[in-house]
Design a protein around this nucleic acid. Structure first.
Lengths: 130, 130
DNA sequence: GTCTATGCAAAGAGTTTGCAGATGT
DNA sequence: ACATCTGCAAACTCTTTGCATAGAC
């Protein structure tokens, strides 16, 4: 589609997503990248996060609880939201099983199922042991 | 929790949710209920939709694409968003299978899985045949 | 030189909330 | 009577966008 031009801001945002363990919100990314680019704007962060997501170089995780989160891990996987601390964690699952869910859904739907979004809720190991 | 008092507005909203086939947004509910209560406010609609959802008398469907939707069908079931017309449809699934998904996820997560939100994307029968 | 990206600030969508008055029990 | 609910409008959160300028190629 559009002609993409290099930008240090975008590179820094991607670098951060690829190295962080967490699943930052746009604002968290903003606060981090601001250390390197004190004048970067939130708008630029959003523009680049969406760009990266469109290019498949990052994943946007939509959560009903607060702002969207972003993940540098582009392998197909799910996420768990800890209902105690609010943290978002990866949940690797067999890609085979991921496909199974769509297939199973197709059996109950008089149309085509292409994809799905699945978000788990639970308690993380940290919050579980008290 | 709080002492709940009857209100005609809430009754009307619930009535609409229970009888409509669709999965209206708060605004759609507002436009409908306004026929009966021309002076009802959007704030009241939101307050009551959230109340009904908290009481388990309705379900809030969070979609990443636009506003949340509400469903008077409180049986455990999933939803499909048609990527062509934007419509949201029910997808009934064996409750057994719904539990299976949590169980499967637990096997891959070092914590507790309590629940999940699952939203399908596809093409509805109407849009499928051209 | 040309086209894209940036910073800034303003606008946008969807939702919540404070308040004074109306309504339910 | 008293607590809850309502309408109204303002506020709030998250995100997008228009514009002039800076930067990439």
């Amino acid at each position: 589609m559009a002609n993409l031009k290099y930008s240090r801001q975008r590179a820094s945002i991607k670098e951060y997503l690829m190295t962080t363990q967490g699943h930052p919100t746009a604002d968290t990314v903003y606060l981090h990248v601001r250390k390197e680019f004190p004048h970067i704007s939130l708008g630029t962060v959003y523009r680049n996060l969406n760009l990266l997501a469109e290019m498949g170089e990052a994943v946007k995780i939509s959560t009903p609880d607060g702002g969207d989160r972003f993940d540098g891990n582009t392998h197909p996987h799910y996420h768990v939201v800890c209902t105690t601390c609010g943290d978002v964690m990866d949940l690797m699952m067999n890609p085979e099983y991921i496909r199974t869910i769509n297939k199973k859904a197709s059996e109950h739907f008089d149309g085509t199922i292409d994809s799905h979004r699945l978000l788990f809720y639970g308690t993380c190991p940290k919050c579980g042991r008290r």
